[in-house]
Design a protein around this nucleic acid. Structure first.
Length: 544
RNA sequence: GAGGGCGUAGCUCAGUCGGUAGAGCAACGGACUUUUAAUCCGUUGGUCCUGGGUUCGAGUCCCAGCGCCCUCACCA
């Protein structure tokens, strides 16, 4: 401790101590000196803050006569101090509890300190009085900074203003925070830092924890709905020899021993359908897929997808299932059927509206989608490039431009042009139409489902058909011989469904960016002048 | 990839006509036993994103770069 060292606390000037990081390091040293482990240890028998709050009605006022009175209902007009005076001399009694959490607010009144403590279930106020906890324990408050983790034993009661409060009898230091605390009211507001340092975002920003806990609840609910319907959850491969099942550019990787190029999966579809062939009649996977494409408020390069397949069903089966998955998830997080998303009110009260693609097309454009010359003329008016493109591709570009944004929904758009649906069964009475639906909410595609194509010869032909005007890498026409062979073994007629889980969570939790519902979205590498670089190096082991 | 906006103290931000930097919070010292974004008194803290340029003088004007955000494009 006596070695000369720029970080030797003995040599710190008062000015240096004004740097928040150095001040925290100095308190760390003082904790050590006081014989307190600043990194804490096992802390048993604590209650969650939410559980403590449920004990509030056990707080009583006991008069000298031994009569126990419940405290009055709280309200702005209730003066608890006056109420106690009315009851005559006595004392407030309440259950003794133990909690642990992060110090969010710290109000030092001299011989009295109020702390707002947060755990993952909520916040509660702690009262620490010099006379109540004693000199030695009270001294600990001088070493507590915002963001530190502490434990408290105390009696539950109410302050004069009526706030439910734990009156500390003993403090336990559990972990020091060495970084400066974010603004105590605003938290971290820089969206990049929120994502890059999600730990701090979760710890200090209001509502972030709730969003991610709701995400977990939604995913649990989805599993529950499917499991109760007899679906079987499986894990398909994420490394694919052929990245099929969707039109998207894959990430490319390489296996050294096999010396082979592999792709990260862009969809779950083709392997789940192989399992249908194998006889897993109701199968789903809830997992990550990877698409090597642009990043936007609605697109993260990796995202979570649900795909479910039901033998002997069709797309209408999947429509009912989709509706149930969504409404069950709403029930699970108890947010109500009416949700606000991106400036729209969306009412999820079932049943959701069901309209055909052609009907919506005609309504929005005034053009009959089967009238090919009229469609092409319309595309030219809209400034779309029509040269060398398949009519269905043109139709769909018009649909995306003129219709999709206005689909506030929830609305099932059903019966798509067949040639843009190479994995979908055609309608028995009209081979131009595919038995497919997409669910739109707030102008965003949320789910996509169809009656699965199980004719191996037709599937092979569709894989071989490169749609005019589509780049090969953008097309779904990627021949997967093994998949076609699987179909030759007989895949039952089936309905299949895909739901973008991140988008569902966005809508149900009211976030307009996918990065608010993905814990660690893809970011550029951190630049070197980033604020996360500490101003102080690790202190040399001056004490040893 | 294109267009627009932003980048100033640990955090959130202000900064006038181009004249050499300011507030609140945090930190540090002090007062206060029922506060609650506690309050009050005092103190400290700056690579004004980076690099050029114009100018006697640039946080401010110009150019380039980097990063972030928004819109568009891409994304069945």
């Amino acid at each position: 401790m006596n070695q000369p060292n720029p970080n030797d606390p003995q040599s710190l000037t008062e000015d240096q101590l004004k740097d928040p990081r150095i001040a925290r390091r100095d308190k760390l040293r003082r904790l050590h000196e006081a014989g307190i482990d600043p990194w804490g240890s096992r802390f048993d028998d604590r209650l969650m803050v939410s559980a403590v709050r449920e004990l509030e009605d056990q707080v009583r006022y006991r008069t000298e006569a031994g009569e126990e009175l419940p405290l009055p209902e709280l309200g702005p007009s209730v003066d608890l101090r006056a109420w106690r005076a009315e009851q005559g001399p006595g004392e407030e009694i309440g259950p003794t509890v133990r909690v642990a959490g992060r110090v969010m607010l710290f109000r030092d009144k001299g011989k009295l300190v109020f702390i707002t403590l947060r755990d993952w279930t909520g916040e509660i106020q702690i009262f620490i009085g010099l006379n109540q906890v004693g000199e030695e324990n009270f001294g600990l408050t001088k070493l507590i900074d915002l963001g530190d983790l502490i434990g408290v034993d105390g009696r539950l009661g109410r302050t004069n203003t009526g706030e439910l409060t734990i009156f500390a009898e003993r403090l336990h230091f559990l972990t020091k925070m060495l970084e400066p605390a974010p603004d105590k009211h605003l938290g971290i507001t820089d969206p990049e830092l929120k994502q890059r340092m999600r730990y701090a975002d979760l710890a200090f920003n209001e509502g972030v924890m709730q969003t991610f806990l709701e995400r977990t609840e939604i995913i649990r609910s989805i599993r529950r709905t499917l499991d109760q319907d007899g679906f079987c959850e499986v894990e398909g491969p994420t490394l694919h020899a052929i990245a099929g099942g969707a039109a998207a550019r894959p990430f490319v990787t390489h296996h050294n021993t096999l010396d082979r190029q592999l792709f990260l999966r862009i969809a779950l579809e083709l392997h789940l359908k192989r399992l249908l062939v194998g006889g897993i009649e109701r199968v789903y996977e809830l997992g990550r897929v990877y698409r090597n494409e642009g990043i936007s408020p609605r697109h993260n390069p990796e995202f979570t997808m649900l795909e479910a397949y039901q033998a002997y069903g069709d797309y209408r089966t999947m429509m009912d299932l989709t509706e149930r998955i969504v409404t069950d998830a709403i029930t699970a997080i108890n947010c109500g059927y009416r949700r606000h998303f991106n400036g729209h009110e969306v009412d999820f009260t079932p049943p959701f509206e069901r309209r055909s693609y052609a009907e919506l097309f005609q309504q929005a454009t005034g053009v009959d989608p089967t009238d090919e010359p009229a469609v092409i003329a319309l595309a030219r008016r809209l400034g779309l490039d029509t040269v060398g493109k398949h009519p269905d591709v043109i139709r769909n570009e018009i649909f995306e431009e003129k219709v999709e944004d206005s689909l506030i929904g929830p609305i099932f758009v059903i019966d798509y042009p067949a040639s843009i649906c190479p994995l979908t069964k055609r309608k028995a009475d009209n081979p131009e139409i595919a038995e497919r639906f997409e669910l739109f909410v707030g102008g965003m595609e949320l789910a996509n489902a169809y009656t699965e194509l199980n004719d191996p010869d037709l599937q092979q032909a569709l894989f071989e058909t490169q749609l005019d005007g589509m780049a090969e890498e953008d097309s779904m026409a990627k021949m997967d011989h093994d998949f076609v062979r699987a179909l030759r073994y007989g895949m039952p007629p089936a309905g299949g469904l895909g739901i973008g889980i991140d988008r569902l969570v966005m809508i149900l939790t009211g976030h307009k960016s996918i990065r608010d519902v993905v814990l660690f979205p893809v970011l550029r590498p951190e630049t070197h002048d980033s604020p996360s670089h500490p101003a102080v190096d690790e202190p040399a082991a001056a004490d040893e």
